[in-house]
Amino acid sequence: MSEPIAVPQPDQSRFDFALRLADNCLVLGQRLAEWCGRGPELEEDMALTNIALDLIGQAQLWFEYASELDAQQRSADALAFFRDQNEFRNVLLVEQPNHDFGYTITRQFYFDSFHYLLLNELVASTDQRVRGISEMAFKEVAYHLRHSTAWVCRLGDGTAESHRRIQQAISDLWCYTGELFAPDTVDAEMFRDRVAPDLSRLQIIWLHQVNSIFKQATLQLPESIWMQTGGKQGAHGESMGYLVGEMQFLRRIYPDAQW
């Protein structure tokens, strides 16, 4: 006998899907927060930490949804602070270290441009919760994208040194862009249920658009190379461990602490 479902039921694929979105936002937010007090100028310090704040806010919304779908019934906080590195499902791009400002901006631009196109489709998701969070996040991410795009143009079309540095970052981080669009069984299932778009279709749009911005910025799109993957399945790089350690440290030594 079927009853109308009022509360989300545990759903492994949808849980994984929400968790990946949450982890992308949380990890990138944490990376950006590392710039706090160290920005190249005061305005940029505020910009990077404002973007971090938006992303951590979005992560919270995705974690809350993931929590409702979780067969283990973990809370949003437990998902953020009590999972180990290999249980994180973010793409490798977002965990890459800040390095210099050119790297940070390039990582942000690669992610913002993907995030923007993705959310633009998720606002029409068949999943009402996904739709609601995406509607809110889309407006914030459009603003982030404006910021990172403007910097790509300024650094690319700036001095010889700024051009050299951002071009280096564009080439070095390129190998992490393939994973953004590499569908696995979770993505295929989400596409089948029209919860999420077809990632390979998004990639075509993304490539075309990123290329046109690089042209404006006098930058070169890297040649196709071997793409690193594995983040969405929990295989992360060495630097991720340090990030998780710093992010979770306080919560883990005081697990019952309250604000």
Binding site: E43, A47, N50, I51, Y116, R146, T149, A150, C153, I213
Partner: peptide, 28 residues
Amino acid sequence: VAIKSIDAPVVPCPRCDSRDTRMISRFG
């Protein structure tokens, strides 16, 4: 989206009403 970043609105000064203002920081 990129072009819109240059196309910021004209924001009049709340003190002297001048329209000759500029954005210092996109984030406050």
